[in-house]
Design a protein around this nucleic acid. Structure first.
Lengths: 333, 333
DNA sequence: AGGAAAATTGTTAGCGCTCACAGTTGTTAG
DNA sequence: CTAACAACTGTGAGCGCTAACAATTTTCCT
């Protein structure tokens, strides 16, 4: 049978409360007592029962991270950083995938309310409007990325500015017919809308007329869908001079199609992405992209979350992270 | 204040136990009572406290998944599948990263023993010997991948056979000087040893003499390290006819180096990987690899885990998954 | 209708932990 | 040597839930 505080207390010749004090370190304990207790803990191989502690304290030490799809490199990198930073601060991380199934939202919220979770970091991509449900009965929530609502604390990169800068960078290499891949035809995601806006802003600045035939729609931001979208686009349109993909993943899918068709990158067309996922560095050719510090995404999200746990009353806060354009081979020459 | 079973019971005019019975559905409850209780639950917006349930039942409904590094595409795909399958079966998944820091091992085990976790799926790569600690005081453990010890249930792909088959497949395209990337110089990981063994077995079958200068060591299996290892290898060795990388990630790093040096794949050298990560499909050129069903890895691991929860006495079991060689552009022609 | 068996609901207790508060010991000053 | 205070340790209760058991009601025979 597992040892409990009682067993440890008995063995150390103290009360359960003293054992608790030793473990938590808030209430001071004399050196001798502390030693006895620690000895007993080792001898009995005692490990505290976190369920009991969670019940008593109302906090579990676990936060949830909800991402659309863990298999996506971007999500994976975010998850990696969140897990790492959280771990350093003593948190455990429970992963939830929201996928494209809207029912998961509700399940997620229920889980989040079930006291096994002290806070929630949510990266809404498909489920933009889910944030609406962020109510008082939920634990603190921090949103990652572009979201239209202003209902929770948020960490993001200014997509409009970044997309504008990337478009300008592409223009600086002498290309004018710049296409974008990843726009939405109907009501798209917030990210799609903002990045398209930045692209348009740059064109205006450059004095280039908008040409809607250079908007290549692609609802889902994966290599598969991007490849398919680009392939069918090329069947009926001339090759643009540059291709700004709203995601590195899409850029990788796009470059695969271009290579298969014998179109040279960057010789025939320059390609750029967004997110700076690790694979972009090793893509062939290496991928120009919008880079930002994903570890900072994680640490800022966790900071907002823990601060919100301490004080649930304040204003909604937004942290805007720095970004920079990283030029690699896919746009050179 | 949050509603509790008591509140629900009072409102429904029944006892707390009846509420519990309605929720768990094991003990039969009459239709009328059930309706009253469900009504009360809705009205009070009641959500059960999982900490309390966990304390009472001794089970939390959470399993842990421990991977070396979530940012790795392979790990990410495994995590995605485990989370998905676990979710379908009503489990939550807590992610732990073991990284290369051995201290994490101990922390992981402590966590695992702290009753917040009902089981553990562990993918040991660096920490091969960690499995030694799999003792009776731990929750059930399932190991993923090649492990030398036989101390826990395990799901894996036969690396020896797969590496042998891949080597044979490369030879079938007419190449004889086949190099492997990812061998270990000292005491390597179990996977490195087994895959090297399979490679050697194939050479023997083919009647090709071993040439140890075709073993390119690379301790850490990432694109970065693979790129560095291959680059320095090429500085002092002639180009082999084929390059079998022990991991798709390494193959992607390798192809990046080859492209930078103007070496054509598959024209000058064929390249193959192992794992069939999604990126391999969109690599330039698309990557020949050893493929296996990652969803099946997840579902088998979960099956073993739940069966082990029910009966902790039986023999250690090993599930060996099917694999197949998928030939793509990187080895064609 | 009477009684036994079956079906349903209620009561009690405690999972392991830590909070509030009460109690005990050691320390210093008058 | 005693009073006043600090520093530490013990006591009791309860977080919310459900297992075992007890009590009650319903159902079905004869």
């Amino acid at each position: 049978m597992r040892a409990t505080v009682k067993d440890v207390a008995r063995r150390a010749g103290v009360s359960p409360k003293t054992v608790s004090n030793v473990m938590n370190g808030i209430v001071p304990v004399s050196g001798a007592t502390k030693f006895k207790v620690e000895q007993a803990i080792l001898e009995l191989d005692y490990v505290p029962n976190l369920s009991a502690r969670g019940l008593r304290n109302g906090r579990s030490g676990v936060i949830a991270l909800a991402l659309p799809d863990l298999a996506t490199p971007y999500s994976a990198e975010i998850a990696h950083n969140v897990v790492e930073v959280a771990h350093e601060q003593g948190w455990s991380v429970q992963i939830e995938e929201t996928g494209s199934d809207p029912r998961r939202e509700y399940e997620l919220m229920s889980r989040a309310r079930s006291n096994l979770i002290d806070g929630l970091i949510l990266n809404p991509v498909v489920l933009d409007e889910s944030a609406v449900k962020v109510g008082v009965s939920l634990p603190p929530v921090v949103l990652l990325g572009e979201v239209s609502q202003k209902l929770a604390d948020r960490v993001w990169v200014d997509s409009v500015a970044a997309a504008r800068d990337m478009t300008l960078a592409l223009a600086r290499t002498g290309r004018r017919r710049i296409a974008v891949l990843g726009t939405a035809e109907g009501r798209g995601s917030a990210a799609a809308i903002l990045r398209t806006r930045g692209y348009h802003a740059a064109l205006e600045e450059l004095g280039i007329d908008r040409d809607d035939s250079l908007l290549i729609p692609c609802e889902k931001w994966t290599p598969q869908t991007a490849a398919a979208a680009l392939a069918s686009y090329l069947d009926s349109h001339p090759l643009p001079e540059a291709l700004f993909c709203f995601t590195d993943s899409m850029a990788i899918g796009a470059m695969s199609v271009l290579w298969n068709r014998g179109i040279s990158v960057p010789g025939d067309v320059a390609v750029a992405g967004f997110d700076d996922i690790a694979d972009g560095q090793y893509a062939v050719p290496s991928l120009t992209t919008v880079s930002f510090d994903k570890r900072q995404v994680a640490s800022e999200a966790l900071r907002l979350l823990t601060e919100r746990m301490a004080d649930r009353t304040g204003e909604q806060r937004v942290v805007t992270l720095d970004y920079r354009i990283v030029e690699r081979d896919s746009t050179r020459g």
